[in-house]
Computed example of a mutant assay.
Amino acid sequence: MYWLFLLLALAALVVAFKASSGALLVISLLASLGFFIAWILGLMAARIGSASRDEGMMLDPNELRRLREQAEARKLAAAAQQTSDPQQR
């Protein structure tokens, strides 16, 4: 959709080059500038939006706490297994 702004900016420049009136020239140049800025902002928003993470994949604090507890339990179980049976290595 933001590419439409670039096409409109180019069309406004064409109108500015063909204009015989000073007022039409100024209006079309300002419109071209506005459409160009809208195109740049749309392009930046699309790039930032494609690079951002999905909010659905983020963990809530309870889930993060549960995962930390599981990791700590696995660490303790591995340490207990190594101390109880050092000959198997």
Rank of each mutant, 00 (worst) to 15 (best):
D54V: 03
D85Y: 09
L10A: 07
Q82F: 04
A38F: 01
V26P: 00
T83C: 02
K18L: 13
S21W: 01
L7I: 15
G22H: 04
D54F: 05
L64S: 03
D85P: 00
L7R: 11
G42Q: 05
S28D: 03
G34Y: 12
L7T: 14
L6K: 07
A11R: 11
A45V: 15
L43C: 07
A23M: 06
L59Y: 15
A11L: 12
S20I: 00
L10S: 04
A51M: 06
S84E: 15
Q87F: 10
M57G: 14
M1T: 15
L29Q: 12
F5S: 15
G34C: 09
E72I: 09
L13E: 05
G42D: 02
I27S: 03
L30E: 03
D60L: 11
L8G: 14
L33M: 11
R68V: 03
L7Y: 14
R66N: 06
L8P: 01
G34P: 00
A12W: 08
S84R: 14
F17L: 08
V26K: 13
A38S: 08
L6M: 09
K75M: 10
F5L: 08
R65A: 05
L33Y: 10
E69Y: 10
A31M: 05
L76Y: 03
R89K: 10
V14Y: 00
E63L: 11
A78K: 08
I40W: 01
Y2S: 08
A73S: 11
K18S: 13
I40E: 00
R66I: 02
I37V: 13
G49N: 11
G34I: 07
K75G: 09
W39I: 07
A80E: 11
Y2H: 11
